[in-house]
Design a protein around this nucleic acid. Structure first.
Length: 92
DNA sequence: GTGATGACGGAAT
DNA sequence: TATTCCGCCATCA
């Protein structure tokens, strides 16, 4: 995840593949759930394949925090609160 | 030991 | 395009 450049995002599936675990997107999500808040890992750059934030499922309202962090990095959200993957998805 | 669940994804309908 | 269903496997009750 630390490979994700500032200003870009990656999906859970992408991170799983990068970790040589294709098809194990759920484990990535589970791993993030276990991350401490003070971690230096840019967990906010990982979103689901629909271009939406999934943090809301674990911490109600927490997606607002994530959105703020991403906006501070230059990510733009559309009117529906989604991210345009065609434009911001990190493609190595 | 067992079954249910989840920061998901992709195929099927 | 929108829903639903199933596979994935570490955790937890």
């Amino acid at each position: 995840m630390r490979q994700i450049p500032l200003g870009y995002v990656a999906t859970y599936g992408d991170v799983a593949s990068l970790a040589q675990l294709p098809g194990h997107a759920r484990l990535v999500g589970y791993a993030l759930h276990a991350l401490p808040e003070y971690s230096d890992v840019p967990w906010q750059r990982v979103i689901n394949a629909q271009g939406k934030l999934s943090l809301g499922r674990a911490y109600p309202g927490g997606d607002l925090h994530q959105r703020h962090l991403l906006e501070a990095e230059g990510i733009v959200f559309d009117a529906n609160g989604n991210i345009d993957l065609k434009r911001f998805r990190w493609q190595p």
